Amino acid sequence: MGTVSRRGVLLGAMGAATSGALALASCGAPGPTRRSGTLTSRHWPGRDVHWQLAVPSGGHDDQHPLVVVLHGKGGDASHAFRIVHLDDHVQATGLAVASVDGGDYYWHARRSGVDTGAMVVDDLLPMLRRLTGYTGKIAFLGWSMGGYGSLLLASQLGPDQVGAVVAESAALWTDAGLSASGAFDDREDFVAHDVFERTDVLSRIPVRLDCGRSDPFVPGNRAFAKALPSAQLTFDEGGHTGTYWRDHGKAQLEWVARTLRQ
């Protein structure tokens, strides 16, 4: 086993008032370079928003397609790596994987004045492009609240900017009255951000839907699959759990890598 080494560098302010540290660890085979830091955004006033990034070591950062990961309700930027362990698959797939805090705001504009979706688009994405130099199409990957958010943000950015979407165990409802408490401010908010009404755009983006058969969101995911027949659909054993999301991460990132490089 090789000697483990770590080093950090301070990242300067980059438009979105970012700061971060770079760490690299190796033990035998090379592993991804890890960066983390905070940004500030007018879309989330008074909050230091944490982000994390894992980039394959070797080659140039701008050669690695970028995947933005959106966590579920109750999660934060750390869940993509600490719970779902997506960093385990960064080196093999050649993808740069980034995650960010989103609170419990369901990745869209809320009456409170917080809009974590706009924060991703206006602040996180430009920062990540400056950090990596990557200029191509991105991918979204999310579970639960983040699965819904991935579909929503992809529909807003469209096929010119988004090349793949993985919506896993997505929090999807066919009617505002069925939605979880706190997911939307009211019926009007639900209607304004209803991804079932955005399938014309999403049909022009490769979409993968994964959902465990024991997941409470199965009805919404089945309905969405009918509304978006172009999506690649998997219903298999499992529930709404970190184990399910972790077990599917490798195959999902391999699918993203193939799709973005086609």
Rank of each mutant, 00 (worst) to 15 (best):
Gly117Met: 08
Ala118Leu: 12
Met119Leu: 15
Val120Tyr: 08
Val121Glu: 15
Val121Ser: 14
Val121Lys: 11
Asp122Thr: 13
Asp123Ile: 06
Asp123Ala: 10
Leu124Thr: 06
Leu124Asp: 09
Leu124Val: 10
Leu125Ala: 04
Leu125Glu: 05
Leu125Val: 08
Pro126Ser: 04
Met127Gln: 11
Met127Glu: 10
Arg129Tyr: 03
Arg129Asn: 00
Arg130Pro: 09
Leu131Thr: 03
Leu131Gly: 03
Thr132Ser: 02
Gly133Thr: 01
Gly133Val: 00
Tyr134Val: 01
Thr135Met: 13
Thr135Ser: 15
Gly136His: 04
Gly136Ser: 10
Lys137Pro: 12
Lys137Gln: 15
Lys137Cys: 07
Ile138Glu: 07
Ile138Gly: 03
Ala139Cys: 11
Ala139Ser: 13
Ala139Trp: 05
Ala139Asp: 12
Ala139Val: 07
Leu141His: 15
Gly142Ala: 11
Gly142Phe: 08
Trp143Gln: 14
Trp143Ile: 14
Trp143Gly: 15
Ser144Leu: 01
Ser144Glu: 00
Ser144His: 03
Met145Leu: 09
Met145Lys: 04
Met145Ile: 09
Gly146Tyr: 10
Gly146Leu: 13
Gly147Arg: 06
Tyr148Trp: 10
Gly149Glu: 12
Gly149Thr: 09
Ser150Ile: 10
Ser150Thr: 11
Ser150Trp: 07
Leu151Ala: 05
Leu151Asp: 03
Leu151Cys: 04
Leu152Trp: 08
Leu152Ile: 05
Leu153Met: 14
Leu153Val: 11
Ala154Arg: 09
Ala154Glu: 10
Gly158Asp: 06
Gly158Phe: 08
Gly158Ser: 08
Pro159Leu: 05
Pro159Cys: 03
Pro159His: 07
Asp160Lys: 12
Gln161Phe: 13
Gln161Pro: 06
Gln161Met: 13
Val162Lys: 04
Val162Asn: 00
Gly163Glu: 02
Ala164Pro: 05
Val165Arg: 03
Val166Ser: 13
Val166Met: 10
Val166Ile: 14
Val166Gln: 07
Ala167His: 05
Ala167Ser: 13
Ala167Glu: 06
Ala167Gly: 07
Glu168Ile: 14
Ser169Gly: 08
Ser169Asn: 03
Ser169Glu: 02
Ser169His: 02
Trp173His: 01
Thr174Val: 02
Thr174Asn: 01
Asp175Ala: 02
Asp175Met: 00
Ala176Lys: 01
Ala176Gln: 04
Ala176Met: 06
Ala176Ser: 12
Gly177Met: 03
Leu178Asp: 04
Leu178Glu: 03
Ser179Thr: 06
Ser179Tyr: 04
Ala180Val: 06
Ala180Asp: 07
Ala180Glu: 09
Ser181Lys: 10
Ser181Thr: 12
